[in-house]
Lab assay of single mutants.
Amino acid sequence: MGFKLLSKLLVYLTASIMAIASPLAFSVDSSGEYPTVSEIPVGEVRLYQIADGVWSHIATQSFDGAVYPSNGLIVRDGDELLLIDTAWGAKNTAALLAEIEKQIGLPVTRAVSTHFHDDRVGGVDVLRAAGVATYASPSTRRLAEVEGNEIPTHSLEGLSSSGDAVRFGPVELFYPGAAHSTDNLIVYVPSASVLYGGCAIYELSRTSAGNVADADLAEWPTSIERIQQHYPEAQFVIPGHGLPGGLDLLKHTTNVVKAHTNRSVVE
């Protein structure tokens, strides 16, 4: 069995187990497998329904001669939608809004960016022009300005110390501490036991640490421990890039980060 097929099978099995364990909360999309990078042309966006009122959005972007996937989250909030992270750029984010209108038909009224990198804030200006209120932590807003990236308009308070959590509509926002970046936030959907790890969490097929220019490698494993301790009931975990899975993604990420750190020390 090929690795790609095995990865998709694991996603399907995880979703099936969740649907059985929580039949009222989960209505997993039966329309197909989780979209992969090879299936999404740059400039297009796919939506994948995880649970009743919960979707991931998947886009792709060219970077350094390669094409990478990027995940975000959409959560229903009454007759409105909360968006977590842009679709990595203005063109993708405009396509995301169009796809949401086509498939869901509810307005996106608020959006949260989970850290300051372009795959999370690139497209904020498109959201703002569409009347979406954009939010991020003060740290993310400051770092985005320093980096020359787009800056969300509103500040999220109460997320300055490791372990801080605040309720934001249908989700809980959690600051686990520094990891992929010093400002990275985690998003949890309690009604569906869905954990969105953003770039602080890796997919299972990833074996290298990737972009760690703004990471705190020493603190990252401790931050992941905080996530595990705060959300032990999480059933569906979405990484910032690639295929979702279960809580095993947290341990896998820790292993990859520690291996990278150990290699760096040896070198």
Rank of each mutant, 00 (worst) to 15 (best):
S208F: 05
E101N: 03
T254C: 11
K258F: 09
D183N: 02
T153F: 04
P138E: 15
Y202T: 02
H57R: 08
T109R: 12
I58G: 11
Q235R: 04
E44M: 10
G2K: 10
S208Y: 09
W88P: 13
S223K: 01
T254G: 11
G242L: 01
L24S: 08
L82H: 05
R110V: 08
S113A: 15
S181F: 00
A178M: 10
A66Q: 08
L82V: 09
V45Q: 14
I104A: 08
K258V: 09
N149W: 09
A19T: 07
Q235W: 05
A21F: 07
S16L: 09
G246T: 07
D119C: 01
D29L: 10
T109C: 04
D64G: 05
L9S: 11
E101D: 04
D216E: 05
K102C: 15
G210Q: 03
H252P: 01
T86E: 01
L6E: 05
V126K: 15
Y48I: 10
V121F: 01
I74A: 12
S30P: 05
S162V: 04
F174T: 06
L143R: 12
K91R: 10
E147C: 13
T60I: 03
A90V: 07
S16Y: 15
V266H: 15
V132F: 02
P107E: 13
L10D: 05
V256E: 10
L243N: 15
G32M: 14
A179S: 03
T253F: 01
G242M: 02
E147V: 13
H230C: 13
A21C: 15
L217Q: 08
L13S: 10
G105Q: 11
A218Q: 04
S161V: 08
Y202S: 08
V112W: 12
V187W: 00
Y68C: 05
T140H: 01
T60D: 14
L217Y: 15
F236T: 08
L249F: 02
K102H: 02
F26K: 15
V237S: 08
E39Q: 14
W220Q: 03
I74Q: 01
Y231T: 06
D64N: 12
A129N: 15
V108D: 01
T254Q: 07
I104C: 13
P170V: 07
V212I: 08
G32D: 12
V257K: 02
N184L: 00
Q103H: 10
S7G: 13
E101T: 10
I17S: 03
E219W: 12
V194I: 12
N262H: 05
A90R: 10
I17L: 04
T261D: 11
P221W: 13
A234Y: 09
A87W: 00
N149P: 14
L6P: 05
H154V: 12
D119M: 00
Y231R: 07
R263L: 08
A111L: 03
D64T: 11
G242K: 01
P23W: 08
A94S: 09
S62K: 14
D248A: 04
S264F: 11
R128Y: 05
D52G: 07
A111H: 07
G105Y: 15
T60Q: 15
L195I: 13
G246L: 06
Q49I: 02
A192E: 04
V108E: 01
T253G: 01
T134P: 07
R263F: 10
V112I: 05
I104G: 02
G78D: 08
F26G: 12
I224D: 02
E80Y: 04
E99V: 12
D29I: 11
E157K: 04
S191Y: 15
L81W: 01
A213P: 04
P170S: 12
Y188W: 12
T14F: 02
Y48G: 06
Y34V: 10
E80D: 05
D164G: 06
D85Q: 00
V256H: 14
N149K: 06
V265S: 06
A178V: 09
P190A: 06
Y202W: 09
V265M: 03
S70M: 13
A178N: 15
P176K: 01
T207L: 09
Q228V: 07
D79H: 13
S264N: 10
F26Y: 04
V54L: 04
I17D: 03
A136K: 01
S56I: 03
Q103N: 07
Y231K: 04
Y188P: 00
A25I: 15
I74N: 01
F63G: 07
G242S: 02
V187S: 11
V237T: 08
G242T: 02
Y135I: 09
I238Q: 08
V67M: 10
P107V: 08
L173E: 00
N149C: 14
W88F: 12
L5F: 02
Y196F: 03
V11K: 13
A213H: 06
G123N: 02
A15H: 04
W55P: 01
I224C: 07
A19Y: 15
T261K: 08
A51E: 09
F63H: 12
I20N: 13
Y175N: 02
D164V: 05
G198Y: 15
A51I: 09
I100W: 01
K91Q: 13
L47V: 08
T153A: 06
Y68M: 03
G198A: 03
L127C: 14
A165W: 05
T261V: 10
L73C: 13
A130R: 13
F174Q: 04
P232W: 06
L10F: 03
S62Q: 13
V124H: 09
G122H: 12
P41M: 13
Y68V: 08
H115C: 00
G2V: 13
V266K: 05
L24F: 14
T207W: 04
F3K: 10
I17Q: 02
M18Q: 02
G169V: 03
I227W: 01
S191D: 07
H230E: 05
V237I: 02
R128F: 14
Y135N: 06
T153Q: 13
V126Q: 15
A200K: 00
Y175P: 00
P23Q: 07
V67R: 11
A111N: 15
S139M: 06
V146P: 11
W220I: 14
F3L: 13
V126R: 08
A136G: 09
E267P: 14
L250R: 02
V265R: 08
V37M: 11
S7D: 10
H180Q: 00
H154E: 12
Y135Q: 02
E150M: 03
E172H: 03
L127M: 06
N149G: 13
S31E: 08
G2A: 13
G72L: 00
A87T: 12
D119I: 01
W220T: 03
E150Y: 15
H230P: 01
A21H: 02
S22I: 15
P244G: 09
V146Q: 11
L96K: 02
F26E: 14
D125M: 06
S160Q: 13
Y188C: 00
S205G: 08
S208I: 12
L24T: 12
N92E: 10
L82W: 03
T36E: 10
S137C: 04
G89E: 12
S113L: 14
F168D: 03
V124Q: 14
G65R: 09
D79Y: 14
S160N: 03
P170R: 06
V67L: 12
E225Y: 02
R142T: 15
H241D: 01
R76Y: 05
